[in-house]
Nucleic acid binder design. Structure first.
Length: 543
DNA sequence: TTAGGGTTAG
């Protein structure tokens, strides 16, 4: 059944290309099979072609009989905004169309969502205009302001974040400790701690700080590698009549572990206890994670004794970290005991991550049957998303690429209802190529394209080499097409953004490890190489 | 968004 739905959507796509109708049809055809009729959501989405302006979206919806007969609800508007969370023109168009319908009024949640979408897409002027509109309707909440300030700061416009705070009165909100903390936290999270400090000194005579205010600074200074200022902030806290709390100390301790300054961390751990502010479960979990990261497994396990000695109660996240540590330390039996005996005894329930840690540990130690048992346990206990990547890797490592792998994939899709995502397809295609099963690898390649997932550049390259060796000429041609498309889309996007001076955002905003929106994971170096390539071509006068 | 991630070289 799923197969037919995909085939039909693919066929339509091939016939008419990636236009509105095929996009909408694909999304509704690949929706859960029980809903076979077009929902209101699908009807509206089908009327919004890719890449048109917000006014065109409004016109397209207004001119459509089916759209105009839909009974609007805030749930439908929320779903539409969510659907267009990465497409501000469609989101804004839908929003304007909805409010033009008689009797319909937007909720604060819908406004907040729109503000966030505009901010995320760097439409700062439009975001501000919507904020003002909200102010006139008395719809601005602290959450709205938080989003606006964070989006300004995230776009490198921290002064605008401060202006937003200054104008809180006109938006119907108070400038108080809570809203000030929001502003200071926004600035500190964007590494503008010194600027936050200046703002704070200006506001302090009018708004009294609380412990939260100082904790924001402690975190900010630590993030900037300025632990002396963090310590000094603890003193300042006391001077202002606020007592340093477990968060104040734990933040600095975490920083010391991060820097591998273990003795300093232990000193502070003793100090906080002496000050009548004992470490809690978050403090211990953080310490254990840091020590495990530095491969100090014995030291990490000592922390558990220390935690127990002061009667601190474990929770799920603590056990997740402990199981991970034990697995890394090679103590599989002990980890199994924690999972099977200790957790039930202490009444702490495992979550999806706990089980996934167990799966990864068993696979790492060649115990795939036990990993499968965990998957079965997850099925029974209703935990979703078992991580099958470790098991897939075991299949390739042991050369078990026939029955076991097929059964696993079948279970993944049909029993656990997991989608094969880009990383799973990459893993499978690479693994099958290495196992000399390139026909199967190629059929997966076709399948992923059919699903609308674009293969990574490396996947194309590897598969292309393999199919050429096997003289699969049609396949080679199709892969080359995809590869060329890849090259043109990635290079033109990277080129445009590099010309605008956003080299890092050419990859993805601030985190260079995240995937390139909609195109899949492209290696960072590849994109930078393409940027350079194009810059070079410009200099030569070819462009 | 005042602290806690989990396993991965495709």
């Amino acid at each position: 059944m799923i197969f037919h739905v995909e085939k039909l959507a693919k066929h339509i796509h091939n016939l008419v290309g990636p236009t509105i109708s095929s996009r909408a049809l694909y999304s509704c055809l690949s929706a859960p099979l029980e809903s076979k009729t077009l929902s209101d959501l699908d009807i509206v989405i089908a009327k919004i072609p890719v890449g048109i302006s917000e006014d065109e979206v409004v016109r397209s919806l207004l001119n459509d009989q089916a759209c105009n007969s839909i009974e609007l609800s805030s749930e439908l508007v929320d779903k539409l905004l969510h659907r267009f969370k990465d497409d501000w023109k469609s989101a804004l168009g839908v929003f304007r169309w909805a409010e033009s319908r008689s009797g319909y009024r937007h909720t604060q949640e819908a406004y907040d969502m729109l503000v966030d979408i505009l901010g995320k897409m760097k439409q700062m002027g439009k975001m501000k205009a919507v904020l003002e509109e909200m102010g006139q309707c008395q719809l601005v909440g602290l959450g709205t302001v938080a989003k606006v300030m964070r989006r300004f700061a995230g776009a490198g416009q921290w002064e605008e974040a401060v202006t937003t705070f200054d104008e809180l009165g006109t938006l119907g909100l108070d400038k108080n400790t809570e809203s000030m903390n929001l502003l200071l936290d926004t600035l500190c999270k964007e590494n503008k701690v010194e600027q936050a400090r200046e703002v704070f000194l200006e506001l302090k005579p009018h708004i009294s700080p609380n412990a939260h205010t100082f904790n924001i600074f402690i975190h900010g200074w630590c993030k900037m590698n300025r632990v002396d200022e963090a310590h000094w902030t603890i003193q300042e806290m006391r001077g202002n009549g606020c007592l340093p709390c477990v968060i104040s100390y734990s933040t600095i301790i975490q920083f010391y572990y991060w820097q591998s300054k273990f003795s300093k961390a232990y000193e502070l751990l003793d100090e906080m206890q002496a000050q009548g502010c004992p470490p809690n479960i978050v403090t211990f979990t953080t310490i254990m994670c840091s020590l495990t990261k530095s491969e100090e497994f014995e030291e990490a396990l000592h922390i558990v004794d220390r935690m127990r000695s002061i009667g601190c109660k474990p929770d799920t996240l603590f056990y997740n970290a402990l199981i991970h540590t034990l697995g890394r330390a090679g103590r599989v039996e002990k980890a199994v005991r924690v999972f099977e005996v200790e957790m039930p005894n202490t009444g702490v329930s495992p979550n999806t991550s706990t089980c996934n840690s167990m799966i990864a540990m068993f696979c790492h130690h060649g115990q795939e049957q036990k990993a499968l048992n965990i998957i079965r346990y997850m099925e029974k206990s209703g935990l979703c998303k078992p991580d099958v990547h470790p098991l897939l890797k075991v299949c390739f490592k042991t050369g078990n690429t026939d029955c076991f792998l097929s059964k696993l994939l079948d279970d993944m899709v049909n029993k656990h209802h997991l989608f094969l995502d880009i990383s799973t397809y990459a893993l499978l295609i690479h693994g099958l190529c290495r196992a000399n099963k390139c026909e199967r690898a190629y059929s997966l390649f076709e399948e992923m394209i059919g699903q609308g997932i674009s293969p990574r550049y490396q996947t194309c390259r590897l598969l292309l080499d393999e199919v050429k060796q096997k003289n699969m000429y049609d396949a080679a041609e199709r892969i080359e097409d995809k590869e060329n498309w890849h090259f043109s889309v990635v290079s033109s996007k990277a080129y445009q953004q590099s010309r605008q001076g956003h080299r890092t955002s050419a990859i993805t905003g601030s985190n260079p490890n995240k995937s390139f929106g909609g195109i899949g994971n492209i290696h960072v170096r590849k994109v930078l190489m393409l940027c350079r390539l194009h810059t070079k071509t410009v200099n030569c006068g070819t462009y």
